[in-house]
Design a protein around this nucleic acid. Structure first.
Length: 223
DNA sequence: TCACGCGGGAGAGATA
DNA sequence: ATATCTCTCCCGCGTG
């Protein structure tokens, strides 16, 4: 099981379970028709990191036949050295927030603030944590999924993107319904902190290399 | 022309 | 009480 901070993740996982129950009926119908695709997606999830186990290229090509390697906006220092984060590996109890929200090119002031926030409360789920949960959940691949052969890149389904947004709105307890438009706006704001970049392709975003590496390292460590 | 996705900016709510 | 962070919301623009 994927584990971040134990308490935080357990709570979020339970929330996710509740959310998923809402759309369970819809999913049941979908899975009956896409069982094979889900197997493929599990494979992609495991192969998000190109250094991980090889991905089934044939199945990827089938599903992503129309996909072209995205152009990554070089707005920030691209994918820094992994040895730049001293805290990594020193803490065995840090939550996902500690790692995933703190690329090393974020300003010192911001980093300090975020570290304090993540370490202090950990109660408030952040959008990119939620999205990572969705991406790691094979039941949600019809809404949002990793793009194979593109490290950390994920893409929303044009048909089901609003389901993800609706779940996000539920998770946050918003009174007004969340839409993809609003959720994607929040996603694009992550470019400022370097957590997620906008890829110049519709409905497609990318975790920063730093963030992705830490997520994956955490993921592998808890397998 | 139109629908859709994107980005700017302001502001609300939560947190330190 | 204040500063900061993280969205949320609205609006206009670009593109297919």
């Amino acid at each position: 099981m994927l584990m971040f901070d134990a308490d935080l993740y357990q709570n979020s996982f339970q929330d996710t379970q509740s959310d998923l129950e809402v759309i369970l009926e819809f999913l049941e119908e979908y899975y009956r028709q896409n069982a094979v695709d889900n197997v493929d997606k599990l494979c992609w999830t495991a192969g998000v990191n190109e250094r991980s186990a090889p991905v089934d290229d044939a199945s990827c090509e089938l599903r992503w036949a129309s996909y072209e390697p995205p152009y990554i906006k070089p707005a920030l220092p691209p994918f820094l050295g992994c040895d730049a984060r001293p805290a990594l590996g020193q803490s065995t109890t840090a939550s996902l927030s500690d790692y995933g929200s703190l690329p090393n090119f974020v300003s010192t002031r911001q980093s300090t603030k975020q570290q304090a926030t993540a370490a202090g409360s950990g109660r408030k789920v952040r959008l990119f944590h939620f999205l990572f949960e969705m991406l790691e959940d094979p039941n949600m691949t019809h809404c949002v999924s990793w793009v194979p052969a593109a490290n950390g890149v994920f893409r929303f389904s044009s048909r089901n993107k609003d389901q993800v947004a609706a779940l996000w709105g539920q998770r946050k307890g918003n009174k007004r319904p969340m839409t993809y438009q609003k959720m994607s706006r929040a996603l694009r704001n992550y470019a400022r902190s370097g957590e997620i970049f906008k890829v110049k392709k519709k409905l497609t975003y990318q975790f920063s290399q730093e963030t992705l590496m830490l997520l994956q390292k955490r993921h592998r460590g808890d397998l």
